[in-house]
């Protein structure tokens, strides 16, 4: 029993199929997904275009319902219409295009949109809006018009809009795909901080491998199935397999892999510049000692 309450998202044999419009073929976007995500975890989901990762994400707050199998959010079955609004309040979604998820003409009104829908009393909404904007560092833009903000700022407003609903989990569906490097940093720093400091569970869907490496855990989806599920180090050190899945690994990981193939024995699971630099300067000292000894 205890185990169940530790998990915020559980899918069991989740299948989602749809029939393409003109042809009568049944397509399976998800072909039996078993996944559980624990409270407070930071999980990255990666997979090529059309792998089903976005479809999976939309099951987490009942935007899509399973064709068969079950999805349970905080113990609530998404198939049961009575749970709908509680589920959507528990799991907030942030989407790819920042422009297409901001409803209102000022930042504060947009952040208020969610709690207003939940029927929260006005004073309480005000408090939540202020706090949410503070969390994402956008307080000073409270009265700005959203279309004048940068991409990274818009996404932070979108995150604040979700936070104001007091969710336990945030699912971000390629939130940085349309941003420049500094916009990406803004969003990722915010997400990391919310996870570490506020204990909010984060599910991050991304095409950027360096972003996925930030997770406690990386889930790789291909053809509607989970094909890998492990800590980032273990995932990315399998360079060949990752490449076969049409994905990529961070440059330093690939370099470590290549060096190993050429006989330099260093750990293959380096994910950052510092880690590989540590490993290599270690080898360098050894080789210097070795040549000194000759």
């Amino acid at each position: 029993m205890n185990r169940v309450s530790d998990e915020i998202i559980i899918t069991e044999n989740l299948v989602y199929s749809y029939s393409s419009e003109d042809q009568e073929i049944e397509m399976q976007a998800l072909a039996g997904v078993n996944l559980s995500i624990a409270r407070g975890e930071f999980v990255a989901i990666i997979g090529r275009n059309g792998s089903g990762k976005s479809t999976l994400a939309k099951h987490f707050n009942a935007l899509f319902l399973p064709t068969s199998g079950t999805v349970r959010i905080n113990g609530m079955d998404t198939q049961d219409p009575r749970n709908l609004w509680r589920i959507r309040q528990t799991v907030g979604m942030v989407f790819q295009n920042p422009d297409n998820q901001i409803v209102s003409t000022t930042v504060e009104e947009d952040v208020a949109f969610g709690p207003e829908n939940l029927g929260v009393p006005p004073d309480e909404i005000r408090r939540r809006v202020n706090l949410a904007l503070e969390w994402v560092g956008m307080s000073e833009y409270m009265r700005h018009a959203p279309h004048l903000l940068s991409g990274g700022q818009k996404q932070r407003v979108a995150i604040a809009g979700v936070l104001a609903m007091r969710p336990k989990c945030i699912v971000l569906d390629e939130p940085t795909a349309m941003l420049d490097p500094s916009g990406r940093r803004e969003v990722l720093d915010t997400v990391k901080r919310l996870n570490k400091e506020e204990g909010i569970t984060v599910v991050l869907i991304t095409h950027f491998m360096d972003e996925a490496a930030l997770g406690d855990r990386v889930v790789v989806i291909d053809q509607g199935k989970i094909v890998m599920d492990d800590v980032p180090r273990k995932i990315f050190s399998q360079v060949e397999l990752i490449r076969q899945l049409h994905l990529d690994v961070p440059q330093v990981t690939r370099l470590a892999h290549e060096l190993n193939k050429s006989g330099v024995t260093i750990p293959e699971d380096a994910l950052t510049v510092e880690e590989l630099a540590d490993a290599l300067s270690g080898s360098y000292r050894e080789s210097a000692v070795a040549s000194y000894g000759e």
């Binding site: 290549e258 060096l259 006989g263 024995t265 080898s283 050894e286 080789s287």
Partner: peptide
């Protein structure tokens, strides 16, 4: 590029298989 980095590191580490 990764390829260039690999060659350069192998060079300073003293050739292929030097550290093993």
């Amino acid at each position: 590029t990764v390829e260039e980095a690999k060659r350069e590191i192998l060079r300073v580490l003293g050739g292929e298989g030097r550290v093993s």
